[in-house]
Amino acid sequence: MNPILKQKIIDVCNRKIAQKGENVGLSFYAFFANKNDNPELLMEAAQWWIMTHQLDHFEKAIKIKQMVENMHPV
């Protein structure tokens, strides 16, 4: 996973958990602005979320954070 995307996911998860608690759910769209200014990164996140891990549309932020933190560098 691109290190920029990895850090973005961790940062967003941390922020959402701090705001709404450990039960907060999110989708991979949470990592991007409404205006898609980085389609390559969006597609990488979608590939990881949907195709690689077959996650539901909404998942717990804590689960996503742990998955990303536990990834081995490529």
Rank of each mutant, 00 (worst) to 15 (best):
R15W: 05
I17V: 09
Q54N: 11
I10L: 09
V68K: 05
Q47A: 09
A30P: 05
V24I: 11
L42Y: 08
A18H: 10
R15Y: 05
V74H: 06
M71F: 09
K63R: 10
F28P: 00
K8R: 15
M71W: 08
K6L: 03
W49Y: 13
P3L: 04
K65G: 06
N2P: 06
D37R: 13
W49M: 04
H53T: 01
L55G: 02
A30E: 14
I10G: 03
M51S: 12
Y29M: 06
W49A: 02
N14G: 06
S27I: 00
N38F: 05
L26Y: 01
A46S: 12
Y29G: 06
N34Y: 13
E40W: 10
Y29V: 00
P3E: 10
K63S: 07
F31L: 02
E44I: 00
W48F: 10
A33D: 13
N2K: 08
D56W: 00
N34T: 09
W49I: 01
P73Q: 10
N38W: 04
Q19F: 07
D56S: 12
T52L: 11
T52H: 12
I9V: 15
G25R: 12
D56G: 09
I62Y: 04
N23M: 05
E22Y: 01
C13F: 04
I62T: 15
A45W: 00
S27P: 02
L26D: 03
I10S: 03
K16N: 10
A61N: 05
N23L: 05
H57E: 14
A45G: 06
K35G: 08
A30D: 14
Q47V: 01
E44Q: 10
M71C: 13
L41M: 15
A61M: 07
N14M: 02
S27K: 02
L41C: 05
I10K: 01
I17A: 05
H72A: 13
D11Q: 10
D11G: 03
D37C: 12
F32I: 06
P73H: 11
K63D: 13
N36C: 08
E69A: 08
M67L: 13
G21C: 09
A30Q: 08
W48L: 03
Q66F: 07
L55P: 00
A61E: 08
E59D: 12
N70S: 15
A45K: 03
E44G: 02
N23V: 01
L26R: 02
M1R: 02
M43C: 08
R15K: 12
I50S: 07
H57F: 07
T52W: 05
Q7I: 10
K35T: 14
W49E: 05
A45C: 11
K16W: 01
T52M: 08
I4E: 15
H53F: 05
L5A: 08
L55T: 02
N34S: 12
A30Y: 09
K63I: 07
N34V: 07
I9T: 07
K63C: 04
